[in-house]
Amino acid sequence: MAEPNVLTIRVPLDLKQRIARTAEEQGVSINQLAMYMFTKELSDLETGKLISDVWKQYSKKEIMTGFDEVMSKVKDKKVPDWDRLG
């Protein structure tokens, strides 16, 4: 594991209380929860950017054509009652 560094952030009291309450509910320290949340959000942002960069290489028509090709391979199957909407 990398050597820990200190990061001090200022947050509104309400946010700090919410973080503390959530950490307690999860049975972890505020620090552990904050590291998890920072890591998860950064990963989500990085993944979103990566996906966006890949999609930019294709036109909408190319994307829809590819989608239609994949969907044409799906055989018509009866949808079970438990999986129906509404």
Rank of each mutant, 00 (worst) to 15 (best):
E25T: 08
W82R: 06
S59T: 05
V70W: 07
D81C: 02
V6I: 13
Y36V: 13
R84E: 06
V28W: 00
A23H: 01
P12D: 09
L45F: 13
K60G: 03
T22Q: 07
K77C: 06
E62P: 00
S59A: 00
G86M: 03
K73H: 06
Y36K: 15
I9R: 10
T39L: 09
K40W: 07
A34M: 15
R10G: 01
R21A: 15
D83T: 07
V11D: 09
E46F: 09
R84C: 04
K77T: 04
T47L: 11
D14H: 13
E69D: 09
N31R: 09
E24C: 10
M37P: 00
S72A: 14
Q26S: 11
T8D: 03
T47A: 13
T65R: 10
R21H: 12
R84N: 01
I51M: 15
G27N: 07
S43V: 05
F38Y: 10
R84G: 01
A2W: 00
I19P: 02
L7I: 07
R84M: 08
S43L: 12
F67Q: 10
F38I: 15
I30A: 08
L13R: 14
E24T: 13
E3V: 00
K60N: 06
L7T: 01
L33W: 00
A2D: 04
A23I: 03
I63K: 08
I19V: 12
I30W: 08
E24F: 10
K61D: 09
E46T: 01
W82K: 08
R10M: 03
Q57H: 07
E41A: 13
R84S: 04
N31L: 09
E41W: 08
Q57Y: 03
D53G: 02
E25K: 15
T47S: 12
S43E: 12
R10T: 02
V6T: 12
L45A: 14
V54Y: 11
S43Y: 13
G66F: 05
A20Q: 15
E69Y: 04
D44N: 13
K75R: 15
M71W: 00
